[in-house]
């Protein structure tokens, strides 16, 4: 099986879906002539021309709205945000227009659109360029929120997202674009709404998604080597709709859970997951569910401070020790 980067997996997904369906087009800042700020759209302008690979002005609200308007009348836009940090300017469109149109039109107007781009902190980009908005979008009924961790999932999920009849917020990461992984040749999709057990284990469940899957994997390795603890890693892959069954199944097995996420703690994804666990797995719990999140601060520029702000394998290990009563 070929090993390719996350970036190229996304590129393949876009190319294949644009070949498959003439209604699919890509729009965003620098997606065409520049070949993509992070080169996800490399080669697409040559392949599909400027009608379908559309460079926009720096006008996030505007082109998000244009995408939604086009989706209202039957196109299937893929809107790239150079980063999700800039999409705050467009969040009115995403929430008020895309997410609600179907409902307030009484089911008449679906919005089959994908908003995608990298989110969360990269390296030393400071407060305004280092934000994980996963929970913001996951809060909104009408949106689907997808956050793949591997090249395989990235490709399969993006293809599913493009084919979905609903607005999908697709969260990537600057730090993940170079990640490599096996991606089969030929057609496949990964369904939205299904978590993936990335590692089976019996002692504690680590719920994670996107960048924190790597954090959880490192923590799991350390836990196995140093404490003989077998962690189970549940990669959510889709935040909304959330695969609660997968989480509950795992927690029922391990009786313990640590939720790892990149965003801020308050009202975060983990808060929601903890709620589901206390609701559906209460009698399976042998310890409180702990969360490892970004520190509750804007991301600082200084490298050491930034590192301290982000979720780390060490913090996950510490949390696991606490709830396995090992410390």
């Amino acid at each position: 099986m070929p090993t390719i980067t996350y970036r190229d997996a996304l590129n393949q997904a876009l190319k294949e879906e644009m070949e498959r369906d003439a209604n699919v087009f890509l729009m965003g800042e620098e997606v065409g002539v520049y070949q993509g700020a992070y080169k996800v759209s490399r080669g697409l302008l040559d392949a599909f021309g400027e009608d379908r690979v559309v460079d926009t002005p720096i006008t996030e609200l505007g082109f998000a709205g244009v995408g939604i308007g086009a989706a209202m009348v039957g196109l299937r836009p893929v809107i790239e945000f150079m980063t999700w940090n800039f999409a705050l300017l467009a969040i009115d469109q995403i929430v008020n227009s895309a997410a609600k149109m179907l409902y307030m039109s009484g089911g008449q107007i679906p919005i089959p659109i994908v908003f995608r781009g990298p989110g969360g902190a990269a390296l030393q980009l400071a407060a305004q360029h280092s934000q994980a908005f996963d929970s913001w979008y996951a809060h909104v009924p009408g949106l689907k929120v997808v956050a793949p961790a591997t090249p395989y999932d990235a490709k399969g999920l993006l293809k599913s997202a493009i084919r979905d009849e609903n607005p999908v917020v697709f969260l990537e990461g600057e730090m993940m674009y170079n990640a490599k992984g096996e991606v089969p040749e030929g057609e496949y999709t990964v369904p939205l709404g299904e978590a993936d057990v990335k590692l089976e284990g019996s002692d504690v469940t680590l719920v994670c998604h996107a960048k924190t899957v790597t954090v959880a994997q490192r923590a799991a390795q350390q836990l196995a080597e140093e404490c003989g603890i077998a962690a189970e890693i549940v990669d959510l892959r889709t935040i909304r709709p959330l695969d609660t069954d997968a989480i509950i199944r795992s927690v029922a097995k391990t009786n313990r859970c640590v939720v790892v996420e990149e965003g801020w703690p308050f009202c975060g994804i983990g808060a929601q997951i903890v709620d589901y666990i206390q609701l559906y797995a209460f009698d399976h719990l042998d310890a409180p569910v702990l969360r490892v999140t970004q520190a509750d601060v804007p991301i600082p520029y200084n490298k050491r401070l930034e590192k301290a702000a982000k979720p780390s394998p060490e913090r996950v290990v510490e949390a696991v020790k606490q709830i396995t009563y090992l410390d």
Binding site: N255, F282, D283, H284, L285, D286, A287
Partner: peptide, 12 residues
């Protein structure tokens, strides 16, 4: 004495 502190799983 009084309320016993126990995890839900331990109670079950």
């Amino acid at each position: 004495r009084g309320r016993v502190k126990a995890s839900p799983l331990a109670r079950r």
